[in-house]
Design a binder for these strands. Structure first.
Length: 221
DNA sequence: GCGACAG
DNA sequence: ATCTTGTCGC
């Protein structure tokens, strides 16, 4: 689709420098409230952890029908380091995005956007590289604190780090552990949360994530 | 020194 | 991320 991802950092120091250079390109804006298409992105690993499968699944928001799917098999591009997680999966996910025949209206990533120690998690990183609206839905926290969330579906609580609201802890299903929603690029938190709720009408995670997870999983086995 | 630490 | 048994509930 877009931008090539040329020289990849090989050390933590280089990766930090890349984050520092790219984070200024993040755009804060009121994103699409009713996107026609939404893309889910996910990666799965084999037993050795040496190989991975990356998937992007584009759904029509109206009926959740699959509009497009792209997969890539690759190798992790970086070791797992909290805060540098994106450097592991971005090359494979970008390669998959480039295979799409349609340009999705929003990217929904597995992980965080601005809810990151340097405000540049995976969702922000992919948003900047593609210049598409993007946000993250994480299953566990990386940074931030929050007040206990109401038990009813739709309840939310601000995720605050260093005095700054970096995301929301959102209950997508009554009585089920909440998810962590944070903005990446060109979308606002309210729209990210309502979109997440819309896509998680039946399960804890949005259908986008579930679809991508399923695809990249049986890409390995 | 002891925890915490996206996937 | 991934490895795993049983168990509780609709």
């Amino acid at each position: 689709m877009l931008t090539a991802v040329q020289p990849w950092p090989r050390t933590e120091e280089e990766a930090l420098a890349v984050q520092d250079a790219l984070r200024s390109r993040v755009v804060s804006a009121a994103g699409p409230a009713d996107p026609a298409t939404v893309a889910g992105l996910d990666v799965a690993y084999d037993d050795s952890g040496d190989r991975l499968g990356a998937a992007v699944v584009v759904l029509n928001t109206a009926d959740l029908s699959v509009r497009d799917t792209a997969v890539v098999r690759d190798r992790p591009a970086f070791p797992y380091v909290p805060g540098l997680f994106a450097f592991r999966e971005v090359p494979a996910l970008m390669a998959a995005l480039e295979k799409l025949t349609v340009r999705p209206d929003v990217l929904i990533c597995d992980g965080h956007g601005l809810a990151h120690p340097r405000r540049f998690g995976l969702a922000a990183h992919l948003g900047v590289l593609t210049d598409l609206p993007s946000f993250g839905v994480g299953k566990t926290r990386l940074v931030g604190e929050w007040e206990e969330v109401g038990t009813a579906r739709g309840s939310r609580s601000a995720l605050v780090d260093e005095g700054e609201t970096v995301g929301a802890v959102l209950r997508t299903q009554t009585g089920v552990k909440p998810v962590f929603v944070s903005v990446g690029h060109r979308i606002d938190l309210d729209n990210a949360c309502s979109l997440t709720l819309r896509l998680a009408s039946r399960y804890r995670l949005p259908e986008t994530t579930r679809a991508a997870d399923r695809v990249c999983r049986d890409l390995l086995s």
